[in-house]
Design a protein around this nucleic acid. Structure first.
Lengths: 196, 196
DNA sequence: AGTAAATAAATGAACGTTCATTCATTTATT
DNA sequence: AATAAATGAATGAACGTTCATTTATTTACT
């Protein structure tokens, strides 16, 4: 196990506190004092590591996005067949969302509200590049519908956010069965129907 | 044309201002003074019609949701066949989102952030009842996959929000062709494949 | 190894600003 | 003349941020 220094522990607590408070109350309703108190540090300490509140949210966003990307492309390589590759990535996204619920909600929140600077949002989008490349390959091979990445994303990755959000609110439970069904629907929506 | 009294005009301006400012800056970053100024009224006047800021956002949300529902179920009746009914509703949702861009963004924003009171959010969900009934009928007839409403919604209605948001940010253009494609993907994901 | 000096990290009270809300007053309508 | 609608300056609470001060860690020297 990697040993974390005391300040690294506090740093992690700060990030966790930011994520948790922002998803539950929204960015502007979350005060720096509340973040500090939740993290067990002083408000002033935050300003040793982050320029201001906006800088804090931008950096936390990119940090979480990086963790996300590392997780979902783990073990994936361009060489695997398109359908298999898609299945691996899709399921790892689902795993991430279920394992790191708050982090996942935080990413949805940032991607769907104007709290993140445009620059940081664009930076975050670049991270899913391997998935875009996979789709392109699939399209060249006639396996995947010739839709632009936005449409493909809207029907495969985006719906998961909705389901996890609902689960978070206890309105719905994402069982193994539901998960398999959701994957099938993702795939059905983007694959080319070979039989009439 | 229906004539609106002067105060009704101001009332509409207030709602429009709230919607526009909230989707562009977020709820908590939008001050009552700014809303008032944008609507061309005094901050105090808002309190004649709404108890407080929270009451304002809740009521505006339900107001827009009602407009949305009226629009998307216009001309639809339970008696039409499942596939046709779905097509009508889906396309009217798309029409609404393209015609009333800010209202649609506002609804997504409220549905995906914690700014609306839980009570009002639950109230808003009830409005899509006819669509849920249509799905149920489709499932009984063996036309639509036996997935819970959350999953069906995630793969048909929810993706549209993503596409309209992207269009709003000028990252993507929802042409007629893209729209037809998106509809096909919605349908492909929820229909039962009759041929192996 | 032990201690003092130097540096770094962390604190939290204080500051100026902004906000939601109020209400005495003005303007419009009946 | 009486009532209703609208105003906007005033208020106090809460905010992000600062910085003089305290606490912890590292370095230098014996």
């Amino acid at each position: 196990m990697k040993e974390l220094s005391k300040s690294e522990v506090k740093r992690e607590a700060l990030i966790k506190a930011t994520i948790s408070l922002v998803i539950n109350n929204g960015f502007h309703a979350t005060s720096m004092s509340k973040i500090a108190k939740t993290a067990g540090i002083s408000p002033g300490t935050i300003y040793l590591y982050y320029e201001n509140k906006q800088d804090l949210i931008n950096k936390v966003y990119l940090h979480v996005k990086e963790n996300f990307t590392t997780y979902v492309f783990k073990g994936y390589h361009e060489s695997v067949p398109v359908e298999k590759g898609f299945k691996i990535i899709w399921h790892q996204i689902a795993d991430f969302r279920l394992k790191f619920v708050e982090e996942a909600l935080f990413l949805s929140h940032c991607d769907n509200t104007p709290i993140i600077d445009e620059e940081s949002r664009k930076e975050g989008i670049k991270h899913i590049q391997p998935l875009l490349a996979l789709w392109e390959k699939g399209q060249e091979l006639g396996i995947i519908k010739k839709a632009c990445p936005y449409i493909l994303y809207a029907y495969t990755v985006y719906p998961m956010a909705f389901l996890t959000n609902a689960q978070q609110r206890d309105e719905y439970h994402l069982t193994e069965e539901n998960r398999a069904l959701a994957y099938q629907m993702s795939w059905d929506s983007i694959k080319i129907n070979t039989n009439k």
